[in-house]
Design a protein around this nucleic acid. Structure first.
Lengths: 227, 227
DNA sequence: TCACGCCGTATTGTCGACAATCGGAGTATT
DNA sequence: AATACTCCGATTGTCGACAATACGGCGTGA
């Protein structure tokens, strides 16, 4: 439900999905050149659908195309991620404010239950951050849905969502920010229950700022190791 | 400079550009079915590049594709536009806040000069709203550039930008909101000069809210006429 | 030794033809 | 007369081959 699996539909759609998955999980490295013939071969299809898929991914900013020179996997450097988190703060803050007035009581309750499952998972297997990370994204996406703003949902869902997942796969292997993050999530749900949009937005913005600080530090460390 | 004219590059890029233009100007009606063979014929190219162009436009939300049933021009109904302006308020507000600290004095001065030319145009030809409208978009885009946030620029520039233009062509024929809008622009520039990001954001958000109210009323009138 | 230009190869861009699927007209049946 | 079924035309989806372009190695000359 989180990641839709259109193993149906046109081959171009399938290719786009599989490519996105490969890029997000790091199976295809950042900056790596994407050879059309090779990928088409691997996916068992012609180059036509694959080219359409690449156009699609270009729109999602997962690949960068240069005319007559092929497509490469996007590179998530520090500046790109900083920009992403900035935009995310604005959009998710907005989503949260709207959700406070638009979500049904039941939906908010569901959100709370999601956090319960989430907490359970953390307790049971503190190490496996991956599933937790996906769960976190699910939380954010549910709030985006709660905004009832289709454009916002599309932006947070289809585009930024994938870039974020990509970022997570790259950094969150050892991220131990799960507990404070969970608390912040709880606070947000509480604000939603009280229908306090202003507070909900503020909390979400702080939550994302915190996430960015965490990621940023991690990048610093990584850069020092590399250097 | 405002609308890049890539009559160069791949045919798919050319097709995407020409299609976008046709859609934005209303030459292709909203909801109209887009026949691949016919369009390919008209543009003097095969269906391959045209399909890639459609995939591109789908990413820009200018067309909606349904597998095995073709692509149709998007329809800008009231809800869609409301969502668009909501997102715009958040993003452009953010852009304005960042621009207040990121733009150089020279860039801000340029922005002022842009408004001068703008005012001149209004005085000389009060009627021709079209050019003014494009000028308005230019103003907003310059601020987006001033934010130094590449992702924000892309979002406001390539995607929303086209939808907005489309909306303008549809409604602003008789919009007489140019003078208050110009004043608001001036206020914004002033706030930027004072490096007051908070104020700049506030003014921009109000400006966009005002624009939406104006558009909204116009849609109301249109709906009454149709009904 | 380095710079420059040439050429072969690999890769991208494009086209035309074929297969798969959808929508609708027409007909038969109740 | 209404409904469901079938078939046909039109349109989309896909593939393979060809043309155009860019990249890299090689040789030549200063």
């Amino acid at each position: 439900m989180l990641v839709k699996v259109p193993e149906q539909g046109t081959l171009a759609d399938v290719a786009a999905h599989r490519l996105a998955q490969s890029i997000v999980t790091g199976e295809l490295e950042q900056g790596q050149k994407l050879n059309e013939a090779e990928l088409a071969e691997r996916f068992g299809m012609g180059r036509g659908p694959l080219r359409e898929a690449l156009r699609h991914l270009e729109g999602m900013r997962l690949v960068k195309r240069i005319p007559n020179a092929g497509a490469r996997v996007v590179v998530l450097d520090r500046k790109t991620l900083a920009d992403l988190y900035g935009v995310r703060e604005a959009l998710e803050g907005m989503a949260c404010r709207l959700a406070a007035s638009q979500m049904t009581d039941d939906e908010i309750a569901q959100l709370g239950k999601l956090l319960d499952r989430h907490e359970e998972q953390i307790r049971k297997q503190g190490g496996k951050v991956y599933a937790q990370s996906e769960g976190d994204l699910d939380f954010h996406f549910q709030i985006a849905r709660g905004s009832r703003n289709q454009m916002l949902m599309d932006m947070l869902g289809s585009e930024q969502y994938q870039l974020l997942r990509m970022c997570r796969y790259r950094t969150s292997r050892n991220a131990q920010r799960t507990k404070p993050a969970l608390n912040q999530h709880r606070q947000i749900v509480q604000a939603l229950q009280q229908r306090d949009g202003e507070l909900a937005e503020l909390l979400m913005r702080r939550h994302i700022q915190g996430a960015w600080r965490s990621i940023s530090e991690m990048i610093d460390k990584e850069e020092k190791e590399t250097a």
